[in-house]
Amino acid sequence: MRDCVNAEFRDRLPELLHGRLDGAERAMVLAHVASCEDCTAELALLRSLRETLAADAPAIDVSRVVASLPASPSRTTRRPSRVTRRVGSLASLALAAGIGAVAILRDPAVQDGPRQVHTLPPIALPAPERVAAGESAAAHGQPSSQRAVEAHGELALEAGLSEVSDGVLAMLLREIETMDALPAVEPEEPLPTPARDDETSGVEP
């Protein structure tokens, strides 16, 4: 099999084979091939090689590949970090305690008469774990103050404020003071959702 002396056309044969030539260039190369036995034979050889070698490649399971791909950026939702959530919960508690204190101090009975302890209605907190944690503890007959502490991972305070002992409040306030500041940079990867057990045992000594 001989080589065509016109190297420029000959060099274009793979592009012609793959349809990568534009209209005018394609027409020129085709015209040359039609008049050149060497290029006709070489183009036939290239076509046979392409078909033979392509047949060697196995079919790829596209679904399997797609399933292994990372999620697209828009599907990666960022969840608040654990520290952020804890600070949010404790801030809610602090706010609730403050409201309770103001309510007590503004009570005429407190201002004018002997000191009385009032039971405030249950304070609803936004934490989704509140109900589950509270119900779980209530089911075991634990006092509500203890429930508040045990559900501290996402703090649930469903009892009146008067039921929370001074010791419990002091412990919670100590924890607020010792909490780390928020990280300057949030991790890029979404954090894994912690197990419920981890969250409900969040009170540190």
């Binding site: 070698l53 392509a54 060697d56 490649a57 196995p58 079919a59 790829i60 596209v62 590949v65």
Partner: peptide
């Protein structure tokens, strides 16, 4: 994918 498979085999 088919082109990558061919290249891998080759």
């Amino acid at each position: 994918a088919p082109a990558l498979a061919r290249f891998a085999v080759a």
